Amino acid sequence: MGWTKPRTPTTPAAPWYARTATAAGRPAVLAATLLMSMPGEYHVAKFAGWTDPWAYGMPFSLSAYAGIAAVVAATRPKGARGRFSATAGAAFAIVLALAAQVVAHLVNTGHMDHNQAWLIAITSMVPPAVLAHLLHLAATPVPTEAPAAEPAPAPVTVQRAPAAAPPMPAQAPAAVQQAPAPALPAPAAIVYQDPRCAAVRPLYDTGTRPSTSAMRAALITAGHGRVGDSTIRGVIRAEIEQHEPHLAQLPPALPMAAGQNP
């Protein structure tokens, strides 16, 4: 009985109206919150002494700063340089935005006097502090993850058949018959560092040096997939002929005919 791969549970897809509401609702909520926050941040800038049109820069400073710091904090990997600073900056920006709304509404409703030194001083420090932190984030490099190195293939040991002794001449006279040639010792087993060499080595047994297309077809048949020409000639063929240098002197075989699977 064949083995069946177990099915992994999948999360059912959300209904189309839920996906539509999520996709369209995010930009709508973002625009609405920005518009609702701008008057309070504008009034706080006016309280601190900025005149028009400079007071309109306060909403953009706080809102853009909060968004940039939040994106940087979310996109940088854990432990990367600048991630903690971006996270702290995002939290600080949210606190500033919240404080600006609370102060503006308290002043407008008469619960607070806007002409206070500490309020003016803190508000005046917001633009240069935002600029300094954004420049710090821009100057902090984002680390790039190096691709994982491909594990080296395990060596493969191939036992070659002993070379056949030359045939004796037929019906040689008994007087001139020589003693039988001693049996040749079995050659030592060849250990290939690249296991794909074992699929290509039998092609040399035909007495010719196999072509690149023939070696590629043998690799595909053996289940190694499609291998590039430079790897076939510069790695696999080179290792085979390094172990058996006489194979490099064999006459070249004819390339595979067009239309065959390369």
Rank of each mutant, 00 (worst) to 15 (best):
M1F: 08
G2L: 12
R7F: 02
T8Y: 03
T11R: 12
T11M: 07
P12Q: 01
A14Q: 02
R19G: 01
L30I: 11
L30M: 06
M36C: 11
M38D: 09
H43T: 09
W54E: 15
P59Q: 04
F60E: 06
F60P: 02
F60S: 14
G67F: 05
V72N: 02
A88Q: 15
G89Q: 08
L96I: 12
Q101K: 15
A104Q: 02
T109V: 15
H114F: 09
I120R: 10
A121R: 10
S124R: 11
P127T: 06
V130D: 03
L137Y: 05
A138I: 09
P143K: 00
E145Y: 04
E145K: 10
E150T: 11
A154F: 02
Q159N: 14
P162W: 08
P162Q: 11
P167I: 06
Q177M: 13
P182H: 03
P182Y: 01
A188Y: 04
Q193R: 09
V200L: 06
V200S: 00
D205C: 08
D205V: 10
T206W: 06
M215W: 02
R216I: 08
G225P: 04
R226W: 06
G228Q: 14
I236D: 00
I236N: 00
A238L: 04
E239C: 04
E244T: 11
H246L: 07
A248S: 15
Q249Y: 07
P251N: 14
P262M: 03
